[in-house]
Design a protein around this nucleic acid. Structure first.
Length: 888
RNA sequence: GCCCGGGUGGUGAAAUUGGUAGACACAUCGGACUUAAAAUCCGCCGCUUUCCUGCAUAAGGGGCGUACCGGUUCGAUUCCGGUCCCGGGCACCA
């Protein structure tokens, strides 16, 4: 074999071997234990980034490990190929999104192949392929039929200059990203999916049906779904609209989880779009202007939450349902029309936000809950004002003197008697709006007829194919102007000329079921074929923690819809979930003269540290453009790697310089899979060095005559000398830990274990006896199999070169090693000795000693005698195999 | 603002979840090999030397130490309460 490790040769040869064998094609086989291990499908942004490398290496390690353990393992791959970045690239380069996307896919696929991933490429899926998105359209039509999909207005970010809808990402500080114009909220019609119909089941399964999911993800989903029990009730009024009818039937509904405080209501607030607000604005120009002002700014929850809470009186009054007081109706910028009934009651005494609002506008504060006899201070909010558990109602007529629970029951009962309210469960979760005013997505299969309105495209006409030749220019959806898309379109009902819907679907639709399509990706008869019954549910899903809520919740919902339509049998798609941590890198920027921000690559700057070693800033290493070397650069901290911030690391450089095995080993070794990884490329060299050491050891071994014939025969302990026994104890002890770490997917310590194995083998002084050679061969054979899932190329080559393949077969399917218990037997063990909980020394006792023997040894030890100074032990705690603690 | 997670040496981290804190590595430094360099191999590597023994900044012992403050326990990186900082998500980025 070659004396020097040459990663190019090794990786090429191994990959050719696997390709020739068609090693990764898997077929459904009911006789074998199946395992479906899948990564979240990548967006084809151009190149792989380190997050991908990390994700797929985890997936690949799992796949190869399980295959050696006898499983029929599926590892598929696909492309989340629709989306905004392709349109942005088109704006920049004038290249149609389709071409850009397919070129990226081709490039990234080559990169994945160079990484040596055990992907079954025969199942590849691209979501922009009509054979795929046809089924998005098909299921959407089924949902329309079932009433799961419906149409209503949605609020979007509107750029008044470009006359286009903006994504939240395209709104920067309330301004359009390209025009700088102040963004407005605008209501337009769109399609929604009734995920709220599934809220209870989605919540229930989080709590009981997903034991293989991380607790933190389940908690996040639980909070997102946000079940709350409360009371929905109405204030009454006789305000009439222009048509003479009572607005809202004379009722203004609100929802509250604090019905016990209803007697403390001193105002109400409605959303700017609420019918009462719009009615009042007709006669009050100031109010109309205020409502208009509320429309500025973006739509994100974060933005609304930090916005100052402001309001304006409408002059309208409504009647309190229990005490008959007339209550002022305000318009509040913090009330959302899309949440509940678009109106809230205001109880300043017991809600922090209402308190602040009341102080600001001089609204009365009426204390109606007393906590532990504490004195209410009307000037200053205290946290206990909102404490419902310890409170007792006061100032509440017949509802006074009650606990929270009793007060809510009594008040709900009283409202019920009047027919003005009842207990209700509400959800924070909102229905899923799937309409996007964009080109590069799945066309929504609807035809608009002047007479019949929005008419579903007949199933036989699917797919509605997206034209491939559009180049977005930033002003609206190019499908509106694409004549071919609308040519010859007729209403399916009356046959008269009509227009296609030009909205496309949210790309979360694409990613909500692709993992079922992998089971039979080109089937043109069925959305999912029988293969899905074999592979689903997915056994292990792996992806970024950033998808903990939206993607995972939508995929769970979509699966349940498919189940209810009889397409699949599973309730939940993902049995186990591993949420990989983000790969972060430092971000360096500088404000340009014109106000824009320029980002710098980490390698272009040198950090400036304070006395504690913290980075406070940076300076340019070399001149760049008009900026001289040494120019001060702002350090923005760490953040996810992104193209726009110039802080991505291209794995291609690593692969070319050191090989895929080094890139894989490094990403696995540097941090545990679930942890955030702050990039630091100084340590890559070390991983390469380790592989070279493994290679060199293998080369030395192959030089020993007949090494291949020294197969181990377990259980024949007598054949090993003392040194060989010690080596086997070390190797098998470490292997036991490595195997445990494989099972819990803690791959960083798997790599540590492999390093420990090599250290032990290198330190071993062979006496040339058969036992010595056998122990080394056994140890190295175990090492190769342990490192193989992480670094398959080098392991495959050494395995073959050293003749292991001849005995145990191709490493792909070689049997996973077993711990030889006889190698773990020890005569004597060491226990730590603590006195009063402090470590003072150690004692040696025969293995398997009982508590009495250990106690006696501890008390008799030199350390104890010296420190106890004759005092008798008060208590002795023995932790088997670890330590003994004597309390005196 | 709200929800979730994290914080351990110069650096990445480990500690099988209450039992030897820093395994395994990276970097720096010191040494071997070499005419030299590279490569390789070996060694040191939390703080405290105004805590003690010592000529000693050698060696040994002691004390402190897992973001910070407090608590539970024979024993806390691990459990509980509070604070600070960092990261992820917040429904049209994916």
């Amino acid at each position: 074999m070659q004396e020097k490790y040459n990663h190019l040769d090794v990786e090429q040869t191994a990959q050719t071997h696997w390709t020739t064998r068609d090693a990764y094609r898997v077929i459904e086989d009911a006789a074998r234990k199946k395992f479906y291990a899948c990564s979240m499908l990548p967006y084809p942004s151009g190149k792989l980034h380190m997050g991908h490398v990390r994700n797929y290496t985890i997936n690949d390690m799992l796949t190869r490990y399980l295959r050696m353990n006898g499983y029929n393992v599926l590892m598929p791959m696909g492309w989340d190929a629709f989306g905004l970045p392709a349109e942005n690239a088109a704006l920049k380069n004038g290249v149609p999104p389709a071409r850009w996307t397919y070129e990226n896919i081709a490039y990234m696929k080559r990169q994945m192949q160079a990484m040596g991933l055990a992907i079954d490429w025969s199942r590849e899926v691209a979501t922009c392929d009509p054979r795929y998105y046809k089924w998005n359209q098909w299921l959407f039509l089924k949902m329309l039929e079932k009433g799961i999909a419906y149409r209503k207005t949605q609020v979007v970010n509107w750029d008044p200059v470009d006359q286009t809808v903006l994504a939240n990402e395209q709104v920067i500080d309330g301004k359009g990203w390209r025009t700088g114009a102040t963004v407005e909220k605008r209501e337009i019609p769109g399609y929604y999916l009734k995920i709220t119909d599934y809220a209870q089941e989605l919540l229930g399964h989080v709590q009981t049906g997903l034991p293989g999911w991380p607790e933190r993800v389940k908690l996040m989903q639980e909070n997102w779904i946000g079940k709350s029990e409360g009371v929905r009730f109405a204030f009454t009024h006789n305000i009439r609209g222009d048509n003479g009818a009572l607005i809202g039937g004379g009722r203004m509904y609100v929802f509250t989880t604090r019905a016990d405080t209803i007697m403390g209501v001193t105002f109400c607030a409605v959303a700017p779009e609420h019918p009462l607000a719009l009615h009042a604005a007709k006669t009050q120009p100031a109010l109309a202007a205020f409502i208009e002002e509320c429309k500025t700014g973006g739509t994100t929850e974060a933005e609304l939450a930090v916005k100052e809470k402001v309001g304006m009186r409408t002059g309208l009054k409504v009647v309190h349902p229990l005490n008959g007081h007339l209550i002022d109706v305000w318009v509040g910028n913090y009330v959302l029309m899309s949440y509940g009934d678009g109106a809230v009651m205001g109880v300043p005494a017991h809600d922090e936000r209402d308190f602040a609002f009341a102080k600001k506008y001089g609204i009365a504060i009426v204390e109606v809950v007393l906590v532990d006899g504490m004195t209410y201070d009307y000037d200053q909010w205290q946290d206990w004002y909102g404490d419902k558990q310890r409170g007792v109602t006061i100032n509440s007529d017949s509802f006074s003197g009650l606990s929270y629970k009793d007060a809510v029951n009594a008040i709900a009962h009283a409202l019920g008697k009047e027919g003005l309210g009842e207990k209700k469960t509400t959800w924070r979760l909102r229905d899923w709006g799937v309409s996007r005013q964009r080109y590069w997505g799945t066309p929504i299969p609807i035809i608009h007829c002047a007479e019949h309105g929005a008419v579903p495209v007949p199933e036989k006409d699917l797919p509605v194919v997206l034209p491939q030749d559009c180049v977005p220019d930033g002003s609206g959806n190019p499908l509106n102007k694409h004549e071919g898309f609308h040519a010859g379109v007729v209403c399916p009902i009356c046959g008269r000329s009509a227009r296609r819907e030009t909205d496309t679907m949210d790309t979360f639709v694409d990613s909500s079921w692709y993992f079922m399509r992998y089971c039979d990706p080109t089937n043109d008869q069925k959305m999912v074929a029988e293969g899905a019954d074999y592979w689903m549910p997915m056994d292990q899903y792996i992806g970024g923690i950033e998808h903990a809520i939206l993607h995972l919740l939508y995929a769970r919902f979509w699966t349940k819809v498919m189940r209810d339509l009889g397409l699949v049998k599973v309730d939940e798609p993902f049995t186990k979930l591993l949420t990989q941590g983000m790969v972060l890198n430092h971000i360096y920027s500088r404000k340009g003269e014109k106000g824009g921000v320029e980002y710098f690559w980490p390698h272009e700057v040198e950090d400036i540290h304070d006395a504690n070693g913290k980075i406070t800033g940076a300076k340019l290493k070399e001149a760049k453009g008009s900026l001289p070397a040494g120019t001060l650069i702002t350090y923005e901290g760490v953040g996810t790697m992104s193209k726009s911030k110039n802080n991505g690391v291209d794995p291609q450089d690593l692969i070319e310089k050191y090989g895929a095995d080094t890139a894989r080993l490094y990403t696995m070794f540097t941090a545990p899979p679930e942890a955030t990884l702050e990039w630091n490329d100084a340590a890559v060299e070390g991983s390469y060095r380790f592989l070279r050491r493994v290679w060199n050891f293998g080369a030395r071994l192959s030089a020993i005559n007949n090494i291949a014939s020294h197969a181990i025969s377990t259980g024949v302990d007598g054949q090993f000398g003392k040194e060989a026994k010690a080596l086997r104890l070390e190797i098998h002890t470490v292997f036991k830990q490595v195997d445990y770490d494989y099972q819990r997917m803690q791959y960083n310590t798997v790599v540590s274990g492999v390093m420990k194995m090599l250290n032990a083998l290198e330190d071993f002084k062979s006496d040339g006896s058969t036992g010595s050679v056998m122990a080394v061969r056994e140890g190295f054979g175990m090492l190769l199999r342990c490192m193989y899932p992480a670094t398959p190329h080098i392991a495959h080559t050494l395995w073959t070169e050293l003749g292991f393949a001849g005995q145990l077969g191709d490493l792909l399917d070689a049997p996973w090693p077993k711990v030889d218990d006889s190698a773990l037997v020890q005569d004597e063990i060491e226990l730590m000795l603590q006195i009063n909980g402090k470590l003072r020394g150690a004692i040696r006792v025969p293995a398997g000693s009982g508590k009495e023997v250990i106690e006696a040894a501890a008390v008799a030890s030199e350390v104890f005698v010296k420190l106890a100074e004759g005092a008798a032990p008060k208590k002795v705690i023995v932790v088997p195999g670890r330590l003994v603690n004597v309390v005196i």
